[in-house]
Amino acid sequence: MDQITKLLAITLGAILANNFIFSQFLGICPFLGVSKKVDTAVGMGIAVTFVMGLASAITYAVSKFVLVPFELEYMQTVAFILVIAALVQFIEMFLQKSMPSLYTALGVYLPLITTNCAVLGVALLNIQEGYNFIESVVYGITGGIGFLVAIVLFASIRERLVFAEYPKSFEGFPIALVTAGLMALAFMGFSGLKIW
């Protein structure tokens, strides 16, 4: 029972209260870069969720069965980034072979995910928070869903921004950042949501 409450807390936290984008600032680059259209944003969000879930599981195993027994914890950063890079490469080849339709849908976003700090971030946070295997995977997947929610909402606002009037110096990134700031303000409302 305790376990279920804890998983629920992790889920709500990752999607709403501690959203990766709006309160932890992880994964801002793809968030701003790939949010001009809603459908590409959905693709990116799904790809990130997928990779974050898998990366959480694999980095947990790497940490528990390789780094800790051999007392190599100081190699954590190097080991994790290599595992993630290899994982993304592997997923890319696997999808290309077995699910070409999904592969073409995700397209260029897959390789970009290696340098998404949300993926490395979730791996490091799992270790820092001392989550067990199930909690790590749940945190990875729900963190990815939080990213998906944020990027889809942001993309749909951004599509309408094209018609808005604002000073010329704000063109491009500045107005996007101000919009994201206001969304972060809205998401702050969820921080009152405490069940733990």
């Binding site: 000073p167 990134f173 107005i175 101000v178």
Partner: peptide, 17 residues
Amino acid sequence: LPVGGFLVLGFLIAAMQ
């Protein structure tokens, strides 16, 4: 808070442009 990060950076980039 995080909000301030987004807003201040947005305004700095606008000033730079």
